[in-house]
Simulated assay, not measured.
Amino acid sequence: MNGKIVGAFILMTALAAGIALYVFQVYAFYEPVEASGNADVQMTLLASNQPEVILYENFEAIDAESSPIRYRACFTTTMSQPLLTETYKPYDKAVPNVAPGWFDCFNADEIGAALSSGEALAFLGTENIHYGIDRVIAVMPDGRGFAWHQINPCGETVFDGDPAPAGCPPQPEG
């Protein structure tokens, strides 16, 4: 009988730990990002290589301090894909990160498929928004837009413990 009590205790402890881990990963660390109304969505200009605010509406975003790549955002824009392509820097190898299921405006599978088929276009939002992390913007033909943070080649190398490759900005202290 004593073994059943110990086994039940271990099982209940594991179940509680699993539930807590799930809640922390999916809900606890994310917080809504308050829209500023004037600089929430920026893309890097081809001409100056500097980020510029684009026309956008219906902005909603989440972020977490626990990781620089937890940022996700959704918005709409009236700017056409041809105009965006002529004005802003494209982003190669854009891969959207999966958002929590409750942030239902951001579907990484749908965005990824649209990027793969060429239906959606990806642009550099802000390079090195955090060291080694770029903000990527994807825009669908219907004007729906999405933003997320993605590790760039400098970040991939440095985060693996290797020295930064040529052309990367200096690493921040600490």
Rank of each mutant, 00 (worst) to 15 (best):
N2H: 11
G3L: 06
K4P: 04
A8T: 12
L11R: 07
T13V: 15
A14F: 11
L15S: 10
L15N: 06
A16F: 00
G18Q: 11
A20E: 10
A20W: 10
A20Q: 10
Y22R: 15
V23P: 06
F24Y: 15
V26T: 13
Y30V: 05
Y30W: 11
E31C: 06
D40V: 03
Q42R: 14
L45D: 05
L45R: 15
L46M: 11
A47N: 14
S48E: 15
S48N: 14
N49W: 08
N49T: 09
Q50H: 13
P51Q: 12
Y56N: 09
Y56G: 04
F59N: 08
D63F: 13
S66R: 14
S67K: 14
P68D: 02
Y71M: 03
T76K: 09
T77K: 06
T77R: 08
T77C: 07
T78S: 11
T78R: 09
T78W: 01
M79Y: 05
S80I: 10
P82M: 07
P82K: 09
L83T: 12
L83G: 09
L83H: 11
E86A: 14
E86I: 04
T87K: 14
Y88M: 11
Y88E: 07
P90Y: 08
P90R: 08
V95K: 03
V95C: 00
W102I: 09
D104H: 03
C105M: 05
N107G: 00
I111R: 00
I111Y: 00
I111H: 01
G112K: 00
G112R: 01
G112I: 01
A114L: 10
S116R: 02
E119T: 14
A120W: 03
L121V: 14
G125D: 10
G125T: 12
G125S: 12
N128Y: 12
R135F: 02
I137E: 02
A138P: 03
A138C: 10
V139W: 06
V139I: 15
V139G: 02
M140S: 07
R144V: 04
G145Y: 00
F146E: 01
C154R: 06
G155Y: 02
E156D: 11
F159R: 07
G161W: 04
D162W: 05
P165M: 08
C168T: 10
P169A: 03
P169Q: 05
Q171R: 13
E173C: 12
